[in-house]
Design a protein around this nucleic acid. Structure first.
Lengths: 205, 205, 205, 205
DNA sequence: AATGAATGAGCGTTCATTCAT
DNA sequence: TATGAATGAACGCTCATTCAT
């Protein structure tokens, strides 16, 4: 997850600002209503411009979608990487996983409409858009596999575990939280801890 | 969750058949494309009738949605209950949970477009329709809480576990499988077993 | 205006009854909403049958319209003729006119939905239906011309009066009352008297 | 009834022109066929735009109706007021009434599709639209009452006359002319004169 | 850089009508 | 005699998109 956008364009043009407003508005609306229930006019209205102006920045509604989907993964990927990298080299595999889960959850539930939009709508979006998002998703999945492999190599995960399945199991729980999470009740850090506890120790009495 | 439809109407009218075809077509399409990307004409075409005829059976597209959502929970609820009830009285809490997970997964992934449609689209559907589906969803959630409580009471689940959170964690993983499951790779029974193993024993080495 | 229906069919078949119910329902609805805003299903529902059954009695919606329009004039024509014929031979032209106005008003405002429907909707109905109603309307107009001519011949109407224009003026006022008449405020007899007073004596001080 | 639109917007936008074309087309079609028999596509076609474009200017078909109905009364009101105001202060009540009738008739029969549409369709239009038109209709009726009262105060109308009834009688005749008037046969001025003669002197021999 | 105006395609829905039963 | 089921055409309306300004 390299190449922060800011390197390319140190001082954002006005156009960059508007472009961002369109994307922000779209992410929020896609997340709330889904892609096809969201109209260009809703997007434009939230971005405080007129519908026609959107086409100065994007060729089509599905180009906006592609960008939103891409940013959604990019943002969560960067956050997770950053959280793991911030750990001391001596950190255990489990500590790393906990940091990753916490960062993923925080991004998904508190920070980024792009990520939550991606997680929520991916399955209902036109297949062509899904396909365009698949490469980056795969890279992100590989990163998690790496995290799990690291722990397994160090004996923190039992030798019989099917890591792909574990990843699916863990990220399933985690992503599904977008459907029920209420920020007034629990913090994302608390949740991350609990999820990792269950994952590692199980609930058996 | 009893009441098999067949008892009420032993010989279905022609109209019942068409009504069912409409619902089946809708469930499949909603599941694939989401609610608002699905058109009445697509539904009609899959049901092999003309678009106008749909209105002989339903007042509106969202009435179809309501019915699809309702059936989606009803069907999985009935399947899970039936699977658990089929167990001997002596079955452990964990066995019951495993049977429940297997039945839920099978219904969701192999059997019912209604259930998978519900799980997939609920979050992107108009709030009014969500609300109309909430009562039965709550009942279903209560049933799972009961299953977990049973295991906890018998000491199969540790005394500190927050059962609501466990349910969310477990059903999250399970429901999320709708996004990645490939019937050619693993059976739902295998998956159920694995999920329960992770849940109870954890992956710790 | 001869041929009372009962002569042709002394004992009405059941079908005659239903046919009548359809016509009654149509007249009422056409009068209230106009022709094209009235649906076959509304008609059927008021007649307590199903929409398809209407076609056992009529070939099309506009055939119903034709019949309603025809009956509308027939009924008021018969009522007016009867009222005039009931007068003694010695009755003056003005008395005859007053009786005619009273009968027309009563039929239009209190008695027949067919007549009020005709008066209200004629101008907005397809030209073909208008044309089919024109013959009987002309006959009715001639009858009024006769009434006026009778009065003029006897010197009750000034020799310079253009009778066609007088008829238009009088029947205009009278027919327009369908737009404002409130049965709780004035009787049709009172109105007829007033109208004739204005027509004959004017309002000049 | 003053307020010439032109003062507000000296140079009409292109949009104003199209808006007007839509209203003109609607008034003409409503007048000819009634409200509900008139389709958006007919309106658009007469306005030389596409059906969808109508919605750039109006929210709904019934908003067009409301505007047409309002303009219909506004226009005839303004014309009548202007005609009466053009008379010398010394003009008699009868002269004023004659001018008013002439202006009303001319607007209704020769000048404004809005006014003739209003007069013809009001009774068959949805009640909600009727109600929205009622305020301005009432104001117009009051104006006529004022005209009649003026004549009565000066002794030109007999002291026993019920002015509301007289107004209904007169305007009934006048409005009804929309159903039979043929511009090739008589001028509206001629008709106005005749109507007032009958009204004031009656036809008595 | 942004918009007002317009469009074409298609949407959910209605409705007169048909017809086997 | 009447209806349940279905249809085809059209309706009011929405929407992504275009483009001159």
């Amino acid at each position: 997850m390299p190449a922060p956008r800011a390197v390319k364009r140190p001082r954002p043009h006005k156009s960059d600002v508007t472009r961002h407003k369109i994307l922000d508005a779209s992410a929020k609306l896609f997340r709330e209503q889904g892609f096809s229930a969201t109209t260009l006019r809703q997007i434009a209205s939230r971005a405080k411009i007129k519908a026609g102006s959107v086409y100065y920045y994007f060729d089509s509604k599905s180009q906006i979608l592609d960008e939103v989907l891409k940013i959604g993964i990019k943002v969560v990927f960067e956050a997770v990487e950053k959280a793991v990298d911030a750990l001391p080299e001596t950190a255990t595999g489990r500590t790393r996983l906990e940091a990753a889960v916490a960062a993923h959850l925080h991004t998904l539930l508190r920070y980024s409409d792009y990520t939550s939009a991606n997680i929520r709508i991916f399955g209902q979006v036109p297949r062509t858009s899904q396909n365009r998002n698949r490469a980056i998703r795969r890279t992100y999945a590989e990163y998690w596999n790496g995290l799990l492999q690291y722990a397994k190599d160090r004996g923190e995960i039992g030798p019989d575990a099917d890591l792909s399945l574990v990843r699916l199991f863990l990220l399933g729980s985690v992503n599904w939280s977008v459907e029920w999470y209420d920020p007034k009740k629990k913090s994302t850090e608390f949740l991350a801890k609990k999820f990792c506890n269950i994952l590692f120790e199980g609930i058996g009495g």
